[in-house]
Nucleic acid binder design. Structure first.
Lengths: 339, 339
DNA sequence: GTGAAAGCGCTAACAC
DNA sequence: GTGTTAGCGCTTTCAC
């Protein structure tokens, strides 16, 4: 029970306590090689009695193998990445791999730093959000010699393997659906995040598809900080006050879309007759709103599971495809006319 | 550029490339000890050119120091823990410590497994949610010889140090406020999670304070799975159908509370006159609702920052208090009468 | 089925 | 200011 200050237990302690060589103790603890039942029991008993916890640092150094996977994402606070993580964990749980999460706050330099930090632990692979990285980060990824799975986005060039959706196409598809439903006075409400490349690409795809049909965005507004739901309300109100002619509002995420929806319902707007709405992400939250906001599922969980599967395959020496594009579908909900 | 298959670079490579001993290279890369500027430059240049990333595994083994902090939490998907994490990260960013997150899904056995896994990397400290752990987990924490900060809850006995709020008291306070406002027919809506000890304690505190005033909960309903917002709607509807006499609904979290609020507003209930509402957590989301739900801030971010501060103090050899109780305050919003 | 020796890539401690 | 030596606690390899 009482442990001699500081120093934690080693294999040697278990070896001495059980009267078995360190090597054999190691074998027992890792379930490797043949060990007689009697020896195994003795070792297990001793290890448990002592409360021995193996030192993975030493193990990793000796074996040159680390069962960690670096997962690098921009944020934990917007619902989308926790779901991706869920998918990753679910798959890795059935393997010997373990995810370790790093958060970049959408800052390229921080991403670089986090990556450096994580690579210095010599993980078995990297799953990293996005295709945009600093040059140094790309160099590190290239030099690491481990599988690198870039997730979320497929509009660009990957270092190695990518798993995601085309946000540009997602924007285009939504634009087409909106036009097809007959809306022409379209407002866009988004986040003020120049470094959120996926939101940017959706916006570009959106405006591009509108332009192709001779339509231009009538109003736009961007926010940053604060409660997304509250910002959605405020921006919607401000925008409609500025331009009451608008007949459609496209929100860059469901949360601000939900805020807008709630505000419009309160004000008695006829949705989707008088004004249509759409968001992006397909968050579960929407299920509980008075009306279902039109949205597009970003395939978050599937991206996570697929990425983990691909990574696991690579770690086992297989050679899976290097591009995995998932295709999100529009959910019309109650806020975008169907035709 | 081209690296010879598999094997990644070592100090020796940098040493050879720069013509400086491994030891000095190590000193430069760690900013330790005096090194002449000329040497430093040469080393840095060589390291950068090669794209060298130090091997922390070897470093940690040699120095017996690991700058990792194990952070063990039940879930990432309910808004509360990401905020705690935010607080932890913010503080640790100014130190040499780095958080590594493990998720338990509220399962004691999984917590034990995750803890074991993390301790085997010999972190500098542990921040773990809750005071309830398996016996084995407690034993490991005790034997680890590192600072252990148990967070969120202070109603119980800590292994070492605790930082959190009293959920029992939170429940009591809310009950008192509700009674004081004149409500008597109270319904409780919660999660079906026997392993969420903090929710359980709030419930116990709540019923206890009611009982002390001769009031009993009139209705109760528990849910599991699905969109919390949607469940809040459904449960509210079901409960009021069953018992239209209810004049107050206490929700175990803000998300289901928000769902209930939206449903009641739609149905034209007079809030808080006809029926009062309260949730728990103080989530930012609430700012965007048509009416402000009464709630109680769980001090999530402060718990994170305080825990990290205490841990950092301990790592530096200081000896901070072992109990840090934060005190949440009721926010009455628009759904709980003031008196 | 078990053990002994060597070494993974670094750093502490000490020498110069 | 810089280099040398001896491990850190395991696992690999090979011998028995």
């Amino acid at each position: 029970m009482a442990n001699d200050e500081k120093r934690s237990l080693t294999l040697r302690d278990v070896s001495e306590a059980s009267g078995v060589s360190e090597m054999t103790v190691s074998r027992v603890l890792r379930n490797r090689g043949d060990v007689s039942n009697a020896t195994r029991e003795r070792v297990l008993r001793a290890a448990k009695d002592l409360g021995y916890v193996p030192n993975k640092i030493a193990g990793a150094l000796a074996s040159q193998r680390v069962n960690l996977v670096a997962v690098i994402i921009p944020s934990l606070s917007n619902m989308v990445f926790p779901e991706v993580l869920g998918g990753i964990s679910q798959v890795l749980e059935n393997t010997e791999l373990q995810p370790v999460v790093g958060v970049t706050d959408y800052l390229p330099e921080k991403e670089e730093k986090v990556l450096y930090e994580m690579l210095s632990w010599r993980p078995s692979g990297v799953i990293i959000a996005g295709l945009e990285h600093t040059e140094a980060a790309r160099a590190m990824l290239n030099a690491s010699g481990i599988p690198v799975i870039e997730i979320m986005d497929v509009d660009g060039k990957a270092v190695d393997t990518m798993v995601g959706i085309s946000h540009r196409r997602a924007g285009r598809e939504m634009a087409k659906a909106i036009l097809k439903a007959g809306y022409r006075n379209i407002g866009f409400l988004g986040t003020k995040m120049p470094l959120d490349h996926r939101a940017r690409k959706r916006f570009e795809g959106f405006t591009e598809a509108l332009a192709k049909n001779g339509v231009e965005i009538a109003e736009r507004e961007f926010y940053s900080g604060g409660s997304a739901l509250a910002k959605g309300r405020e921006m919607t109100e401000a925008m409609l006050k500025r331009n009451p002619e608008l007949d459609f509002l496209y929100y860059s995420n469901d949360m601000i879309g939900a805020g807008g929806l709630l505000w419009l319902l309160e004000k008695g707007y006829d949705i989707p007759g008088e004004i249509g709405l759409a968001g992006f992400n397909g968050v579960e939250l929407l299920q509980g709103l008075p009306r279902h906001l039109a949205t597009m599922d970003a395939c978050r969980r599937e991206i996570g599971t697929k990425a983990a599967e691909v990574l696991w395959a690579r770690v086992q020496g297989e050679d899976p495809d290097m591009i995995h594009e998932l295709v999100p579908k529009i959910s019309f909900g109650d806020t975008l006319k169907r035709r």
